[in-house]
Design a binder for these strands. Structure first.
Lengths: 190, 190
DNA sequence: GTAAATTCTTGATTTTTGTCAAGTAGAAAG
DNA sequence: CTTTCTACTTGACAAAAATCAAGAATTTAC
């Protein structure tokens, strides 16, 4: 079984091989060139994608600054979920930071899964609630941890990103300025 | 139609009156006395509840401090969603800050809805994705706003809570100390 | 109603983080 | 290879927020 299939199985809580095969069959492997966009602001998110290799960044530009909401590496999903599901206009943009391979499913195909996979609503629920939990822990980290603790925690989990992603994006993702990030970094290296 | 029903209709995206009646019929109105718990830590969340009146607080106690994740007022739902859905142990506790009327549905009854309401998976999805969006905006607020801006924004939306909820809980919810909260508060009043 | 406990406020101080500005290093383009 | 652009670092300083401690106000318990 491909690694991608393992991830799908786990994220969606799938048990039967046939269900897995059916779901996976809708995903198509594509390459996004560095700098290209998977989602443009003020449009509807029409693709849900799974990062097979490379890195995607989800961000929003405000009057004064750019906010990075997600940095998605191998094994992560990426999309504006509420835009994708409700077909409403998204405020976010998603860009490839390096050449990135993604398994993509379009909204059109996504809507077809239900007819093929009887338990799809259950799988979909597993997926969305898991996403919810990840976010909840992230809120908790902002309520309970300092910038330095968030740095340390993220660094431990994502070491490999620190020499691939412009550090200012990681800083924004963690809710601090590039300068603060740089100083914490220096401190940790000593 | 009762106000409660309006909220259910809107949160779950229900169109047909019959679906609404069926879903609503599972919820029972109960009163939680001030100080009593809807969820105790290290237990599974077995109830999803809707606040009809009063206020609930969801929080977690760490080694050094107590973190308030949610303050739920009239019109809000309250539960540990992932614990409720996956039936896993919750890290959170939910306590009534004043005598609180809630419409409660047990997990047992919740599981019965599907048999009665054909479109239930669709409604459930609408509900969970909406919850996700709320959280996402909250993460965004921590990435993009100062403590003072978060205070101001929350105050504008929840003025009535400021003379009912111990302010230290609101401070924690907004990710700041009670002292900082108190000083911002003083500043705003001038 | 009074005492006790809790919550809130305030001041003084320290720590953390942000801002501004300059300089350096590194990547991309020609 | 050289130039240009961008990202990163560093220093000096300012602002924001946390901490500690004390006192005032409010709530709770008796």
């Amino acid at each position: 079984m491909k690694e991608f299939e393992h991830y799908i199985k786990s994220y969606f809580g799938i048990v039967q091989e046939e269900d897995l095969k059916n779901i996976v069959s809708f995903f198509k492997l594509k390459t996004i060139q560095k700098g290209n966009f998977l989602l443009k602001p003020n449009s509807v998110c029409e693709k849900l994608c799974f990062v097979e290799s490379g890195i995607l960044r989800t961000y929003r530009t405000t009057d004064t600054k750019e906010i990075t909401l997600w940095i998605s590496k191998k094994g992560h999903f990426s999309a504006d979920i509420s835009s994708f599901i409700f077909e409403i206009v998204s405020q976010w943009e998603i860009q490839a930071l390096v050449d990135t391979e993604v398994y993509i499913i379009t909204k059109e195909d996504y809507n077809k899964i239900g007819a093929l996979v009887q338990k799809w609503p259950e799988f979909e629920k597993t997926f969305t609630i898991s996403c919810f939990s990840v976010l909840e822990e992230r809120v908790f980290s902002h309520l309970s941890m300092t910038a330095e603790e968030r740095y340390e925690s993220y660094f431990q989990q994502n070491k490999e990103l620190f020499n691939q992603v412009p550090l200012q994006y990681i800083a924004s993702f963690l809710g601090m300025t590039p300068e603060t990030f740089s100083r914490i970094r220096k401190k940790q290296l000593l």
